[in-house]
Amino acid sequence: MISYTFDFSFLLTTWPAFMRGAWQTILLAGSSIAFGFVLALVCAIIRSGKSKLAAGLVGAYVEVIRNTPLLVQIFIVYFGLPSLGLRLSAETAAVIALVINTGAYGSEIIRAGIDSIAKGQIEAAECLGLNKLQIYWHIVLIPAVERVYPALSSQFVLLMLSSSITSQISAQELTAEANMIQSETFRSFEVYLIVAAVYLALSVLFRVVLWAIGEVAFVRRRKLRT
């Protein structure tokens, strides 16, 4: 065994690059989460809706995405779409692939929430004279999302972590920055130890922020402590 001395001195000059990478990952994951949530919501509504055809199409989309690797999805969007005449920057392709991916996983989670709404709730709302739209919004959708919010949050944290894969199409984010630093300093092991620590910190940060968003968005949940 060769003796190895750890050397973290490269941090003195490269820490701004790590910070920049972390910020880019926050932007990439944050925008993917926001768009992905909207897509998931729309898909969940369609899937639990009345149109059999639309529900079937969304169901097929969900199954295809959930049973193929994110890496291959990213390759299809970034390398495949230009051959069909649609050229995208690496960052745009990364966001599109991540949004499509989260949309599928998120819609399954939200659908479970919609299914869990008791029929008595809807009947009670009808008795109170709420119209269809009001019932759907206040009695079905918001309580459904409220109920599955913890599961959604974990899914979003996983999305942030898997955004590291987009470094493979040289999208600007933390792992891509690390690859660059690694090739300049040759301290591969130390660089990825630091990166692991930064991702760990980011996952804690995302969990806290998502929890705070939940506290603000779901007032009833906060008050009832359920």
Binding site: I2, Y4, S162, I165, Y199, L200, S203
Partner: peptide
Amino acid sequence: QIIQGTPLLVVLFLAYFGLSILG
């Protein structure tokens, strides 16, 4: 907690470069 808070890609790099450090 630590592994679930780290991307698989980074775990992979650590294993790849870490093992080569061991010679």
